[in-house]
């Protein structure tokens, strides 16, 4: 108990520092790229004097550190700022409707935009991981249990195949087969849970090769450990050893892999897949924001992503040390 409290206190404080640093870097980067945000907000037709005045009013001419301080203060109260582009109804407010003067209240709040999109992304990510596990656990275990035999080779073939397939291609083929041809599942947009299934399959195909390798390697490594053989000589059955001990030990490297590598793949995968399928998640929101140079959204998503990364790694490490007490963090 004391360990858990200390662990989380320490890791949360470290995590906050990391997220703050990431936020600062992104904040600065977005303000030094060419292009004045105020032109994006007000549109190209706005007279220069209005631009300058609005920029001053919005604080966009203050030194970056001052702006960043103000931003952090807002974030701390849960306010992630307002979109440059999107109106309250979510649609783009492009053009120069604000040419005469800019009213920030007319733009959608970033927190709300993300809040609406996030559940969709979580649903897609969750289902994608579930599918990936359904594929990777049986194949990876079979490969690990029969290292060097045909299941091992099957695991290798399946993962090499999956690795070599581009997302886009898989998506197109699945849409063609399952949606256009067989009419089993809907594919584009979102009008119900079934719209998540094909995108989740694409995410799963992206994740599963790494999982298959990780599971088979760590299962095989554990079968080579002395405790496994000794367990059977001590009088335990092979299946007890596999299900109670080998899987438990194999989970630790798998968790670490998840924290270190797969979470990045998952985030990247979500962006692409959501965009392909016009799936209304955070990824789609972000990609549109990038095209429209909607900086508040980009920076909020980047900060959230780094926060998620930090939080997931914290949970992964905590679970790992709970499983294997030798690990220290």
């Amino acid at each position: 108990m004391a360990f858990a409290i200390e662990f989380f206190l320490r890791r949360i404080s470290q995590g906050l520092v990391i997220v703050l640093l990431v936020a600062f870097v992104i904040f600065t980067l977005l303000r030094i790229v060419p292009g004045d945000p105020i032109r994006i907000i007000l549109g190209p037709m706005t007279p220069a004097s209005v631009l300058e005045q609005t920029a001053k009013d919005l604080g966009l001419r203050d030194p970056i550190l001052v702006q960043f301080g103000r931003f952090v203060g807002q974030v701390a109260t849960g306010d992630l700022g307002r979109s440059f582009i999107r109106g309250l109804q979510g649609g783009s407010a492009g053009g120069s409707q604000d040419a005469a003067g800019y009213n920030p209240e007319s733009r959608a709040s970033v927190a709300e935009l993300i809040g609406t999109a996030l559940p969709y992304s979580l649903q897609l990510a969750g289902l994608g991981i579930l599918f990936a596990l359904l594929v990777a656990v049986p194949i990876g275990m079979a490969a690990g249990l029969r290292a060097g035999k045909w299941p091992d080779r099957l695991g290798l073939y399946v993962s090499s195949l999956f690795v070599s397939l581009p997302n886009i291609w898989v998506a197109v083929v699945l849409i063609f087969l399952l949606s256009a041809k067989a009419d089993l599942l809907p594919a584009i947009g979102y009008r119900g849970f079934s719209y998540t299934i094909i995108p989740a399959m694409v995410v799963a195909i992206e994740l599963s090769p790494v999982m298959i390798r990780a599971i088979s390697v760590s299962v095989a490594a554990n079968l080579g450990e002395i405790y496994y053989d000794v367990g059977m000589v001590r009088g335990l059955s092979r299946w007890t050893m596999i299900f109670k001990h080998v899987l438990r030990n194999a989970a630790v490297p798998l968790l670490n892999l998840f924290g270190a590598q797969m979470i990045g793949m998952l985030l990247g995968g979500l962006f692409v897949v959501e965009y392909i399928f016009s799936y209304p998640g955070v990824g789609m929101l972000t990609i549109n924001a990038v095209f429209q140079r909607d900086f508040p959204i980009i920076q909020a998503v980047a900060i959230l992503a780094s926060g998620a990364l930090v939080a997931i790694n914290m949970l992964v490490d905590f679970t790992s040390t709970t499983i294997d007490r030798r690990l220290k963090f």
Binding site: I226, Y227, M232, V233, R234, G235, H245, D324, R325
Partner: peptide
């Protein structure tokens, strides 16, 4: 095994599941 015939080896520290 383990019921009528028991076996102990030279490597006590790695004979059990470390977790």
């Amino acid at each position: 095994r383990g019921r009528e015939i028991a076996y102990i080896g030279a490597n006590p520290t790695s004979a059990l599941d470390p977790t």
